[in-house]
Computed example of a mutant assay.
Amino acid sequence: MSSRFLPVAPGEIATVVTHLEMRARPGPRPVQPVPLRLKRWKAPGIDKYRALYRRVGEPWLWFSRLAMADEALEAILTDPAVEIFAVLDPKGIEIGLLELDFREAADCEIAFFGLIPQLTGQGFGTWLMGQALGLAWRGGVERVWVHTCTLDDPRALGFYIAQGFVPTGREIELLPDPRITGLIPRDCAPHVPLIG
């Protein structure tokens, strides 16, 4: 069997997306206390939401919510089946984002999960995942799922697997590079070459 190379046009980026799921609530795990707390955002304003989304995701080229029309984003943020949480540091500064989507029956998608890059690798992600799973597994939920991609922190896929998620599929996604379209500054994500 020979390999195939798929060309990526100038101005585009390619990423391999991995879908993962959990079909049963995990047992309790010891988690170290952290100086962070989770705060529910009920229908946050678009600007406030996008500011935190940028703070957490811009280094990894998160841009889907930046490209989305305001009306479409507002419909998600105000949907009662979508729960949004900010992670706060001891001073009350928003340094992380958790978004749970219950719009599909019996499913909870961890739609967005992340901390500012300065906090990764310190055990805070394990704490946040414990919070996420505690909130996600509720009556009627039979599957919790998440996806990550090769544009994300290189440790993300291994982290999700270590938390009990099982990979179920992969896709290649081609996207306009948000640094070229102007959604994200050109100097973001230097680990992804800017071509175009």
Rank of each mutant, 00 (worst) to 15 (best):
M1W: 12
L6I: 12
L6P: 03
A9C: 03
P10D: 01
A14Q: 10
V16K: 08
L20D: 14
L20R: 07
R23A: 04
G27M: 11
R29C: 07
P30W: 14
V31R: 00
Q32E: 13
P33L: 01
P33R: 10
L36G: 13
R37S: 05
K39S: 15
A43W: 00
G45Q: 06
R54P: 10
V56Y: 08
E58C: 02
P59A: 11
R65G: 13
R65A: 00
A69R: 05
A72E: 10
L73D: 00
E74T: 05
T78E: 15
P80L: 00
A81R: 12
V82E: 01
E83W: 07
I84P: 10
A86L: 13
L88G: 01
L88P: 02
P90H: 08
I93L: 15
E94V: 01
I95M: 08
L97D: 05
L97M: 02
L100T: 07
R103N: 09
I116K: 15
G121A: 02
G123T: 10
G123Y: 07
M129H: 02
M129P: 09
A136K: 01
W145M: 04
W145N: 05
W145F: 03
H147I: 09
H147R: 11
T148A: 07
L151S: 03
R155F: 11
A156S: 06
A156W: 09
G158W: 12
G158V: 09
Y160C: 13
P167N: 10
G169L: 05
L174Q: 01
P176N: 11
I180W: 02
T181Y: 00
L183C: 06
C188I: 08
C188K: 14
A189C: 02
P193S: 01
G196K: 09
